[in-house]
Design a protein around this nucleic acid. Structure first.
Lengths: 201, 201
DNA sequence: GTCTATACCGAGATAGAC
DNA sequence: GTCTATCTCGGTATAGAC
């Protein structure tokens, strides 16, 4: 079925806000991109204001993000290192899917103070922290570390940093593919520590 | 000595652009923040246009960034793990100093296409890649790894991701301090690999 | 529910007095 | 080098016909 005008407006607004920001986006441009006559106020039959459509688009993306999380596979843990690498690739894929949210956060986190905590709540609390719980559980049997909390922070930071570099610059840092990146990170984590050399094998 | 009007305008413009973006920043607001009469065109005695002051502020920050890099200490390599951790803390400190550049990149990288490559050139080519060279050299004696290129990408991504999380959300991920983070990352790197267990000690 | 037309305001930029 | 005053344009939003 064809998307409703309201949905097309949401699409157009989200796209434009990512490209030129909230203040840079004009209602006229949103109308033009939605197939409405530019300059006519037809937009206002669907949303009360520009800020209104901005918040509606944000809420829709937050809904989608939570949906993506629910679709996450929870694979079996056979080879811990290979399983970890697959998990990391899933995380990168997830971040690619919520790209609009990350763009909004990067761009407008100063303008809308509630936006930061709203997105942060979904991304960190619901997303990463939950994932961190899984990782801690799965890894306990395979990884010894003096400071598991800090170890998880390193992992999460590495995944975020790699994704953001790709997103900002259009290509991965040092042209390292996601597969190489995930494998390297997984190998790093599952190696026994020198500080605690009574490894599991 | 008191800063010149031109310098005060540059300060005001940079500050405002980080807060509300380029299109969100008005010349009137810049004048007000610079101690000029808001609404008067006094701004235009110093810069030809809003875009002009934006580019001038950007160039000034790029200059400063290169200056910060020159001040980087090159410590002696005694204890490799401790030296690495110190190096990582320096990197985080550097990123904190160039915060305006990172903000500009995050915010306006869609609007000014040349900006991305310009900042990317300084940050990546001159900054991280150069640093990566040092790391590769210093670590060769202490770290064995099958894919040193990918290992460096992991390190750089972790540092970037940790910094950006702090910058966006106002506090470090999982409340892990920079010291803990750097120490954990350094320990991770300097441990011998299982895949190549003929370590150096 | 989309159009034409328009009111209103704020922002970028200029002219000219001091 | 800063001010007052002003021009012009573009953007938000509304009114009313179809």
């Amino acid at each position: 079925m064809a998307p409703s005008t309201r949905a097309r407006i949401l699409d157009a607004a989200l796209e434009l806000i990512q490209q030129v920001g909230f203040t840079g986006t004009t209602v006229t441009a949103i109308e033009e991109r939605s197939g409405l006559s530019p300059g006519s106020g037809s937009f206002y039959r669907h949303f009360r204001s520009k800020e209104d459509v901005f918040r509606a688009a944000l809420e829709r993306e937050l809904e989608r993000a939570q949906q993506y999380r629910r679709e996450f596979e929870r694979g079996t843990v056979e080879d811990p290192q290979a399983a970890l690498a697959r998990r990391f690739l899933q995380q990168l894929d997830y971040m690619a899917k919520i790209r609009p949210l990350i763009n909004l956060l990067a761009r407008e986190h100063g303008q809308f103070p509630d936006l930061t905590s709203r997105i942060g709540g979904i991304l960190l609390d619901r997303g990463i922290v939950e994932e961190a719980g899984h990782l801690t559980h799965d890894l306990r049997a395979h990884v010894d570390h003096a400071d598991p909390h800090a170890l998880l922070t390193v992992v999460v930071s590495a995944l975020s940093g790699y994704h953001l570099a790709r997103q900002f610059f259009g290509h991965p840092p040092a042209e390292v593919t996601p597969e190489r990146f995930a494998a390297t990170l997984a190998a790093l984590i599952t190696s026994p520590r020198t500080a605690d050399p009574h490894g599991t094998e």
